[in-house]
Each structure stands twice: as structure tokens, then as C-alpha cells.
Amino acid sequence: MPNEDKIARTDLAEDRTDLAEDRTLLANERTFSGWARTATACIGIGLGFSALFKPVEPTWVAKSIATLFILLGIFLVIAAERRARGLHERLTAHHVNGVTTINFRVMAAAISIGAVALIVAIWQLT
């Protein structure tokens, strides 16, 4: 009988560990999402700064500040992707269907490519 209690406790402990791992994976996805939103906000600030201060002379000052904000957004989304992917690769989903690591890369790449396109557009516009 005591042996059965030990097995039952071990099973319950493994279930709790599995659920904790699932919660950590989901929290990691929410954290990535938060950093991606912050990166997108930085890109939006850069774009807004460029549009708002376009008439300022010399024009390269406004473009440079806008570019800095957009580059910050690119840095944030890439850093978030690397961190999220690293944690995701170390843990295993048990009861949830989490985001695959390739999805983190695709989202970060899409945001980064869009941001680079904005930088090019800001500097090419007269």
C-alpha cells in the first residue's frame, strides 16, 4: 500500500510539472507578443516622427531620428525572437498546442522586413 501511494504521488508530481511547463510555454508566447508590440510601436513612432517633422530643415535630422526608432524596433523584435525561440526549444508542450519556433522567426522576419522597407521609403522620399 505505501508503494502505491508513492507511485500516485510521483504521477501527480509529473502532471504538475507538465502543466507548469505548458504554462511557461504559453507565458513565453505572451512575452514575445508583448515585445513584438513594443517593436511595432517603435516603428510607428519612427514613421510618425518622419511624417511630423518632414518640413524641418535639414531633413536628414528628422530622417535619422526616425531611422533610429525603426532600428530599435528591429532590434527588439529580433532579440525577442531569439529569446523566445531559445526557451521554446528547451521545453516540451504536453497538453497545449504552442507556437512552433519557425513561427517566431516568420513573425520577426516579417516585422523586420517591413521596417527596413520603411527606412528605405523614408530616405527615398523627397
Rank of each mutant, 00 (worst) to 15 (best):
E4P: 04
E4A: 15
K6R: 08
K6Y: 01
R9N: 13
R9I: 06
T10R: 07
T10Y: 05
A13C: 01
D15Q: 11
T17M: 07
L19W: 01
A20H: 02
E21H: 00
E21M: 06
D22M: 06
R23P: 00
L26T: 05
A27M: 13
N28R: 02
N28P: 01
F32D: 01
S33F: 08
G34F: 04
G34I: 02
R37E: 14
T40C: 07
T40Q: 15
C42G: 07
C42D: 14
G44T: 11
G44W: 09
I45E: 09
I45S: 05
G46H: 08
G46L: 06
F49S: 02
F49N: 01
S50M: 04
L52F: 08
P55E: 01
P55V: 04
E57N: 09
V61Y: 10
V61I: 14
S64K: 06
I65T: 12
A66N: 04
T67D: 05
L68C: 13
L71K: 11
L72C: 13
I74H: 06
I74V: 15
F75Y: 12
V77F: 05
I78H: 15
I78E: 15
I78V: 14
A79N: 10
A79T: 11
A79R: 09
E81Q: 15
R82P: 02
R85V: 07
E89T: 15
L91E: 08
T92M: 02
A93M: 09
H94V: 11
V96W: 11
N97F: 15
V99F: 12
V99L: 14
